[in-house]
Amino acid sequence: MSQALANDPKREDIVRLVDVSKIYRQGKIEVRAVDNLSLEIDTGDFCALCGPSGSGKTTVLNMIGGLDIPTHGQVFLERRDLASLSRGEVAAIRRDRIGFVFQAYNLIPVMTAYENAEFVLKLQGVSAVECHTRVMTILKEVGLVGLEHRRPDEMSGGQQQRVAIARAIVTRPAIVLADEPTANVDSATADSLLDLMQKLNRQDGITFLFSTHDKRVMDRARRIVRMRDGRIESDEVQG
């Protein structure tokens, strides 16, 4: 089905994984992190990948984002086979089409909140005036006005995660890949971040794909894909 399905113009999938496997080698032992998995994420989805630790959620996100390459199978993002692109082209896709939110925030330590949020816009070549407007708007949305000149080590975990989300969405990407975005923040912060992401999903149509085992995220997700041992265990759309 792979190539024919991938090229079907009627479908509005933003992500398609076709028979994807990822095998890591630890010495002589082979670890099959993802096992022959096929998955489609439609544009505008608010989808959670759930499952216990080691089920392959993060690996799937990494392969969709071009951070990792599958051992077998194909990953399509907006109908482009990532394996057929150069490192530079994949970097450009990550810059222009994908927003990443990492569990450990992963902000750039020498930059302020403002500069972290502005970083990708600068890479995109957005003008200084436009950058300022967009960054200040997004910082306001995530509740960080007044903290824009603080560096990561001067902010709490919740504040850092807000900056990470601001960085991910400031470019208005096609898809946000969020790896356990609520794992290191308190409940109130988690709720407000999820409110924000839900709002962006509804208002701007940004696709969100979460890797999580947080019930709060699962409760809000329209679609839940459960994984176990690198395979999809269930795939259900919530009312």
Partner: peptide, 11 residues
């Protein structure tokens, strides 16, 4: 991280 958010190898 920088590469993950779009910083290219040449950059």
């Amino acid at each position: 991280i920088m590469k993950a958010i779009g910083f290219g190898p040449w950059q």
